[in-house]
Each structure stands twice: as C-alpha cells, then as structure tokens.
Design a protein around this nucleic acid. Structure first.
Length: 892
DNA sequence: CAGTGAGCGAGCTTCCGCTTGACTT
C-alpha cells in the first residue's frame, strides 16, 4: 500500500474535542474547531450590510417576498475563527467537515462551506462518540453534505426569527417595550402561567383519616401500622378522591376530624382479624445514564444546583477531560464505556451485581438527535471520584455522573411488596356523619390495609438512588411482620389525622425543563438559558425553588392565547418538528412550509396578517384581571407600565408587591392593600407653621413630599405637594428640605404688571409669567433667581435651551445631495449628523471619532429615504421623569 | 398612583441554537 501523504483539515464544533481527535487520527490531519455556528441572521440594524439597509425586510433579515431568502452575516466575534480556518485550509489537500451529526451540525458544515469556499475536495464526516475506533471509522467512510437536512435547519431558523421578531413588537406596542415572544419562551411562560391558573382555581378539601397501630407480638417486627381503608364496606375518602374544586369524585365516606375521632374511639378496643396477606415480587431497573435534562434535574434535587450552575460545572469537567459532552439528548453509551462501567461494577460490587449482558438504553426523547453520547465519565477506564482529585462542586457533580453511569450497568433491585388486608370490628357500632352529604352512617366494621416493601437484593440501588421531588414521596417501604390469614391482632392505638388537599405544585427549574423536553421544546444547549430569558423579561421569578409567574406574564400569555393561539399551542413545536423531519427526508418543501406559516393557508391566518391587524387587540382588557375568587368583588388587578396595582370600583388604587405570587392575591389581600396607602412612605415630622405632618412618598412621577391635612378639612382643601429635586432621595430628604420644596411656587416679582413665579414642573424648573414660560438651568434657581435675572430670561426667545448653543463637534464637508455642510452635533438622543435640514442619529456601530463624510452622507440619505417622521399617535400622558426603578435583569 | 408649561434630529428593543473565552469585580 502506498504511503498516504495527503494533508487534511478536520473541522469540529467544540474545541474540547480537538486534542483527542487529533491524537486518534495521527499525522497528516490538522484538527480545528468552528466553536459553534459561524454565521447567523443579523441581530439588528447595526449588523445589516449597507447594501441591504434600505430593504423592507432588513429588520428581520428574511426576505419574505423572495422565497424567504435569509441574509447571513458573520458575527464580529466569529471573524477571527473564519480567518483562522481559512489559513489552516491553505496548507491541506482535503477538507473534512466533522461538525456534529445533527440538524444544527449539518447547517454549520454548510455555512463553513459557504464562508471558506474551499478549492480542495470536501467531505462530510460523522461520528457519535469520541473513541479511536469511531473516529477512524468515520474518517474512512465520509459522506456528502445533506442539503435536505440543512434545509430543515434553515426553515427552523427562519421560522424562529419571524416568530420572535414579528410578535415581540406587538408586545412593545400593546403591553410594554422590551418584552419578547418566541416559540420556546412563550410556551415556557405559558406553562408556568397555566400552573398558577390551576392553583388559583383550586379549592382545598379537608378530610380525616385514621392510622391504626397493631400489636403483632411474637413476630418481627412486633407491631406495625395500617390505614383504615373502608368503613361499613365503603371506601374512606383520601386526598386523591377529591378533585381540584374540593369535590368528592368517588363513592366514599368523607370523614372530618370529628367523625374520624369518633371512629377512632370505637376502634380503640376493636378486634382485628387478618383477611389476606398478599406478597408480590418487586423488581426495579436502574435509570438510564444521564442526558442534559436528567442531569439538571438530579443535580437540582440532590445538590441544589440551578440548571445554569449544573451546566457551568459540567462544562469545566468536560474541558478538564473528566466527562463526555454535557449537552446531549442521548442515553447511549459507547461500547468502551459499557465495558468500563461493567469492569467497575465487578471490581467494586462483585460479579453478583453484574448482569450477564450489557444493558442497552434507547432515548425516550421524541425529537432526540443523538449527536453525542450520554453524559458519563470520560475515557475507557472510569476514574472513581476519589481518583480524580476533584473538589467542591466539581467533585459532587462528577460523583453523581459516575454513580449513575455505573449503576446503569448493574442488576435490577429485587424484593417483595406485601399487602395485608384486615377487618376491625368495634365493640359497639358507631354513628358517623358524612362530611360531604351530612348523611349519618352506622359503621359496624372497618377495613384496614397495610403495605410494605422489602428489598432482598439491592442491585443498582447499592450505587445510586434517584432523589424525588417533594409530593411524590414513596413511603411504602415499611417492613411488615409475617402475619397469616385468620390471625387475630390487637389494636395498640388509633389516631385520627386531619388533612387538606393541596394545589398542584409549581414548576421548579428542572421540572419545567423536563416538561419542555417532553413537549419537544428547546434543546439541550438552551434549557438553562430559557429560564434565564423568562426571568430577565420579568415573566417569572423564583420563590425558593418554585417558578412563579408575574401578572405581566398573565397579560402577555393572554394576548398570545387570544390573538396568536397557534403559536403558544403546546403541540406547535411538535408539529413543526414533524414537518422539519419531512423536509430533512426530502418529502416536504421549505418555502411552502414557511409560506403556510407566514402568509397562512386554507383559511388559516398567517403570522403576517396577525401582526398587521392589531386594532382588535384591546390592551387594557388584556391587562385586567380579578383577584383570586374576586370575580364579583368589583376589584380589578391591572398590569400597568409601572407595575401591577389593584383598583376598586371607586378608582382607589394600590400597588401590588412585585414578589407576591398571583395565587396569593385574594380579595382579602386586595382589600388590605387598598386600605393601606401605596408604596413606601416616610414621616418627616410636623410643619411648625401648620402642625400638619409632612411625609415623603413615591408617586407616579417619582418621589415627592406632601402634607397630611387634619381630619375634617374641607374637601376643597388641597395639600401642598412637591417633587424632590434630582439630587434628593426619599430615604434622606429632611423636613427642612420638604418645607422649602412645598413653599413653591415662589413669587419672584412682577414684570409689566404680570406676576412671575418660579416653580417645578413636568420638564423641570421654570419661570411662569401669565401664559408665557421659560425653563431654568437648575433646580436651585427656583429659590435664588432674582427679578432682574428673570427679566433677562424672559427677554430671550423661548428656544434658548441648553442644546441650541452647542457648537458642532465635527465638520464633515458638504452633503452630495443637498450641497450643504454636514456637521456632527450632540443632542438629546446622543450624537447626530445634520445638514441643517435632515438629521440622523449615529447608530450603535458609529462613533464621533471614526465617522467619515461618506458614512454621514449615507445616514442622511437613509433618513431622507424614510420620509418625514410618522406622526406620533397620541399616547397617554407620560413624563420624562424616571419610572420607579424596576429590578433590571443584568444581561450578560 | 401627586398635578404642572415648551418644543425638540429618534432609534432600539426582540428570536433559537451551536459553541467558548474575554470581559469586570
């Protein structure tokens, strides 16, 4: 065989794989990483190349009128990667695109091809585990790029862009700026909202049950407990017999504590006979190895990690070569991993714990793409946690992964479940009233039941026990004595216990992610960031580990449900995945798919017509709710721009705390809020002149001071109020300052017989003379300005604002169109260029230092092309003053 | 949500999925 002297470049996605793959391939192979995607649709106007700027579709980067042609740009932070790959390409004879073997990986390969434009032969190489055999086999059997699969990815990408960039602006107009909607986040939010709705509609039922302690002398153990399961042949109601409205759904006796106590008393001296003893074998299989979601769930439950923390610790374990790739939907172990796990089982637990054949797991995830292995310890020989030398979070997470992997190759746990049924006959019949119907029943006998489980062989449980969420506790593990049918037992004690049914539990981070996975929404690489997004938008907040929706989420979800019903349907993504699969197989057409989505089909409205028909969306109605149980209360809960508030029929309002879960906003709570004045209030003291208390409050327009008029003051009497100056704060303002502020407006004097006053207003401090007014430079002038100065100010024209006199920052020659000189000026909205007629603000990418005359002319031309600014629609009264600070989610 | 008078160059916000450093404290 001739020596192969060809040099080849292999491009993978993750830099973490480069070293081992290079090692497996040996000489002649140069391995580099693309570090994920290299191109994408432009994020915003700043990324759109100049030649497309004027296009209608530049905002989304998708030309919907030309078969949804996408515009791709190499993001700034990827330019260096492309340059590096191009350099690497220069010295090779062949290119192997070894990006992940899934939809996104195929697209990355295609984008690389488009950007690198290689002159050498190109092959697509695919592998699903990083072992020497797998890598060598992959390089020996390359394939062609699958353009159908790329089509499927592009369809997914374009659809997500159109959804996100068309629907979000609807929310800006109708609810609040900066909000967002998207295929994944909007459904995630809706899930959390729906759960809260269930909790709000939930009505608790209370019921009693009885626990009987039985004497089993002569056995081991010599006593055990049983439940009263039936009374007079009828089932005794327990939690699962009630529906979410607290109604009994089965034919059963509903005991209240009193009835339970009466029955308990009657059973205290009862004789008990064993009716049956049933033993069933019990086996339990180990859990499959971890994938991203199950790792996040278990690390959340056992280690208390957030999804984000889990992923960040896993990332460092991956980079350190301790575990395999952590973003995966596969539960498959490579052959060498199975061998490693089995070797370790034998070594640590003995051959009796090892199944004859390796266990094989297959993914239950419907849209699993299986580009990677399961998450497991790296290598062909697993290191025990102690051997790794890891510490802290890394040790704990590795330990979890190691145990789960080893346990997945162990034998089933085996044991028995035993159920004992007994009849108790009270010494005298007792009468008990049914708590639901009021019917009085004579209870002459009760059926008792006890169950327990014994483990005879622990199997995998020796290595690993999965933690459970609270609420599904498995308490049937008690060990029971070996009593026999017909045996008589004595009652050692009876206790009646009161219970109440509980509303469905809220989602936690891991349980929401698990639900999303079940609905085929989101991908392993995004699970952690989904929660970050809906938290950053203030749709959801955490209370302990529970995810609680805000009223804002209720408003947004309702808007989407009412007007974009299909888009927040829980099956929407699953349906989309089916179509994408058809595209990937070459059975469906991407353009037709996108047309159906965007322009509609068979009488169904498309996205385009939905977002362009906003007249019907009644923002006020969408943002109005009732407190829990308060449909008739006359109290409304409203989501406003400054937060959520309650309002009664008289128009009284009160803020709702941001961290109050919606299901706790009952009518009583709303009344309580309305009874106590809104927001923070600080007493500053009494005005020595009037004796009135002076308080500082937060209002619609920011912090202000006001006085409390004595009770019985005439209704026409208005308290003096005044906004704080900008350099004052609610926490530190003093009584003296407050009194001075409230002394405004100050009469400065008179000009031409007209009184001049200095006062603080909506646009800041100003002088007023009849109907004429002038702004003041600063707030202190309200107290210091003299009549002389005021006269001079009124002698100036009105536009003597601080901006007018500002000199140009830079001159940029003459505009080629108007012929007039272009200058850069600093204005209210930051730097802008102007030729005296047309003004254009500099974009994010521009700077005063670097702007060229050409760029300035371009900005002006763009602005002229847009025509006159659209007439502002009359908005509700707003203010330039800052809204009360909202918890702002720091964006990374 | 307190209650008060101008006229002025707007542009940007936003999606989902793939992958790591480079930043600052």
């Amino acid at each position: 065989m001739a020596t192969d002297t060809k040099r080849r470049l292999v491009i993978v996605e993750s830099p973490g794989k480069v070293r081992s793959i290079a090692q497996y391939l040996g000489e002649g192979y140069l391995v580099e990483a693309s570090i994920g995607h290299v191109r994408d649709l432009p994020t915003g106007a700043a990324e759109v190349p100049a030649k497309y700027k004027g296009e209608k579709w530049a905002r989304t980067g998708v030309n919907v009128e030309n078969d949804f042609e996408p515009l791709y740009v190499v993001q700034a932070d990827k330019k260096a990667t492309i340059r590096k790959l191009k350099d690497a390409l220069k010295g090779v004879d062949e290119l192997y695109l070894a990006t992940d073997g899934d939809r996104e990986g195929e697209a990355i390969a295609w984008h690389l091809l488009q950007e690198l434009k290689p002159k050498v032969p190109v092959k697509r190489m695919e592998f699903h585990e990083i072992t020497p055999d797998a890598i060598r086999a992959a390089v020996a059997a390359p394939r062609e790029l699958d353009t159908d699969l790329v089509d499927a990815q592009e369809t997914r990408r374009i659809l997500d862009r159109l959804y996100g960039y068309e629907v979000s602006p609807v929310l800006w107009k109708k609810v609040m700026p900066r909000l967002s909607a998207g295929r994944v986040q909007s459904v995630a939010t809706r899930l959390v909202v729906d759960k809260e709705r269930e909790r709000m509609a939930f009505r608790s039922a209370s019921y009693a049950d009885l626990e009987v302690t039985l004497d089993a002398a002569g056995h081991d153990p010599d006593s055990f407990t049983a439940r009263v399961a039936t009374a007079a042949g009828l089932k005794v109601a327990s939690g699962r017999d009630f529906d979410s409205l607290g109604k009994l759904t089965t034919k059963a006796v509903h005991l209240d504590l009193e009835g339970g106590q009466a029955l308990a008393d009657a059973l205290a001296g009862a004789s008990v006979i064993v009716d049956s003893v049933e033993a069933k074998p019990y086996t339990r299989r180990p859990y499959p190895p971890f994938r991203t979601t199950t790792l996040q769930q278990d690390a959340g439950r056992k280690l208390g990690f957030t999804a984000q923390r889990t992923m960040s610790v896993a990332q460092s374990l991956y980079e350190g070569g301790f575990i395999t790739y952590m973003r995966t939907d596969s539960v498959t172990l490579s052959g060498s991993a199975v061998a490693a796990a089995r070797a370790q089982v034998k070594e640590l637990y003995g051959a009796s714990y090892l199944p004859e054949k390796p266990r094989v797991y297959s993914s239950k995830v419907k849209n699993a793409q299986e580009a990677h292995e399961a998450i497991r310890p790296a290598g062909d020989n697993f290191r025990t946690p102690q051997e790794t030398g890891l510490r802290g979070d890394e040790f704990r997470l590795y330990d979890l992964i190691w145990k789960r992997t080893v346990a997945s190759q162990m034998k089933d746990a085996e044991g028995q479940t035993v159920t004992i049924a007994m009849t108790a006959t009270p010494s005298a019949a007792v009468e008990v009233a049914d708590a639901t119907t009021g019917e009085v029943r004579a209870l002459d006998r009760a059926g008792l039941s006890a169950s327990g489980r014994t483990i005879t062989f622990p199997g995998f449980l020796k290595a690993y026990v999965e933690a459970r969420d609270e609420g599904d506790a498995d308490d049937a593990t008690a060990n029971l004595p070996a009593v026999e049918k017909g045996e008589k037992l004595a009652v050692a004690g009876v206790e009646a216990e009161d219970h109440a049914t509980r509303p469905p539990a809220r989602y936690t981070e891991p349980s929401l992610v698990a639900k999303l996975e079940e609905l085929e929404i989101g991908r392993p690489s995004t699970y952690a960031s989904i929660i970050r997004t809906i938290t950053a938008r203030d749709y959801v907040f955490k209370k302990g580990s529970a995810l609680v929706p805000t009223w804002l989420a209720f408003a947004v979800t309702r808007l989407l449900e009412d007007h974009f019903t299909e888009l927040v349907d829980y099956q929407f993504t699953a349906g989309m995945e089916d179509i994408l699969d058809e595209i990937a197989k070459g059975n469906a057409d991407r353009v037709q798919t996108l047309k159906n989505f965007y322009f509609g089909s068979d009488g169904r409205d498309g996205l385009d017509s939905l977002v362009n028909d906003l007249g019907e969306i009644d923002a006020r109605a969408l943002s109005t709710f009732h407190p829990v149980g308060g449909e008739e209360s006359g109290i409304a809960v409203r989501v406003g721009r400054y937060g959520t508030y309650v309002e009664d029929a008289d128009g009284n309002r009160a803020n709702v705390e941001e961290d109050l879960p919606p299901d706790e906003l009952t009518v009583e709570k709303a009344r309580e809020l309305l009874a106590t004045p809104a927001g923070m209030e600080r007493e500053l003291g009494a005005d020595p002149a009037s004796g009135n208390a002076v308080v500082a409050k937060n209002g619609r327009f920011g912090p202000y001071v006001t006085e409390v008029l004595p009770e019985g003051s005439p209704k026409s009497a208005k308290p003096r109020t005044a906004s704080l100056f900008k350099d004052m704060s609610l926490e530190t303002v003093t009584l003296d300052q407050a009194l001075q502020l409230m002394s405004l407006p100050r009469v400065v004097g008179a000009i031409d017989g007209e009184e001049v006053t200095a006062q603080n207003g909506r646009y800041g401090p100003y002088l007023k003379k009849g109907t004429d007014s002038r702004s003041l430079e600063n707030e202190d002038q309200l107290f210091t300005v003299t009549l002389e100065e005021a006269t001079a100010i009124f002698a100036q024209p009105k536009t003597r604002g601080r901006r007018a006199a500002v000199a140009p920052l830079k001159e940029l020659g003459n505009d080629p169109v108007s012929g007039k000189p272009i200058v850069v000026k600093d204005g209210r909205f930051g730097p802008y260029v102007t030729d005296g007629e047309t003004n254009a603000t500099l974009r994010k990418a521009d700077s005063i230092e670097e702007i060229t005359p050409e760029r300035a002319a371009e900005l002006l031309a763009e602005k002229r092309a847009k025509g006159p600014a659209p007439k502002k629609t009359p908005t509700r009264r707003t203010t330039t003053r800052k809204a009360p600070a909202k918890k702002s989610a720091a964006k990374k």
